[in-house]
């Protein structure tokens, strides 16, 4: 597995961001609302025009078509969208173990998306993304709509999956406790810069 490299990336107010995330490593990003955390993830996923270079190992973002890059470097937004009628139609392959690990019944695939709560949508969005088998995960507040117990459940599951698959992960989080639990390295956005915080 390759590492994720951001070199001199600029988007919005953020300027010349440099960052490397190793395979199997979770790096957390935090900062005040509107600081540009989500936009940085969008730049890495190539969803917005930006300056600088993003690479996965030796493969530069601009050298592959946009959809192939995003298939490989996948962002999971804070607010997920759903367009088919049932949950199962959104999954690219059956994910029985993941569904079970996050507390869903076997018949969840038959559920109508209109009956999903925001917390269920958030957990299912993670499973949907992993059903595409991405090489990198960009998680934008993946537990924002969850209670404490479910948050821990999702964290444990994500950590085990990320380590098992040996994938680099950028994780936007607000809670200091959560950052301490999931990541060894933590960066905070201050103004136009990304500062590494040492615990």
């Amino acid at each position: 597995m390759a590492k994720l490299i951001l070199h001199q990336v600029s988007i919005g107010t953020l300027q010349n961001i440099n960052l490397e995330v190793a395979p199997g490593e979770i790096v957390c990003l935090s900062g005040p609302s509107g600081a540009g955390k989500s936009r940085l993830l969008r730049a890495v996923a190539d969803l917005e025009p930006h300056g600088g270079t993003v690479k996965l190992g030796n493969l530069a973002q601009g050298l592959v078509p946009g959809h192939r890059w995003r298939r490989s470097v996948m962002m999971v937004p804070a607010e997920s969208a759903w367009w088919f009628d049932t949950v199962g139609e959104h999954l690219y392959k059956p994910m029985p173990k993941a569904l079970h690990a996050l507390g869903f019944d076997e018949d969840v695939s038959e559920w109508s998306v209109s009956r999903l709560s925001s917390g269920e949508k958030q957990r299912l969005a993670l499973i949907r993304a992993l059903s595409r088998e991405p090489d990198v995960l960009l998680l934008d507040e993946p537990t924002a709509n969850l209670d404490e117990k479910t948050t821990r459940q999702v964290e444990d599951w994500l950590i085990s999956v990320i380590h098992a698959r040996n994938r680099p992960v950028l994780w936007v989080a607000h809670s200091r406790e959560q950052i301490r639990r999931v990541a060894k390295r933590h960066f905070c956005i201050e103004g136009s810069k990304l500062l590494e915080l040492q615990e």
Binding site: A45, L47, P65, G66, H67, R68, R70, R71, S72, M74, M75, V76, P77, E79, S80, A81, W82, W83, Y92, R128, A129, R132, P134
Partner: peptide, 20 residues
Amino acid sequence: RNIIENRLMLGETWSEACGD
């Protein structure tokens, strides 16, 4: 916009993402 961008995030092509 949310739906189209979420489909793009999942690696769909522009044509698949806005097909509907």
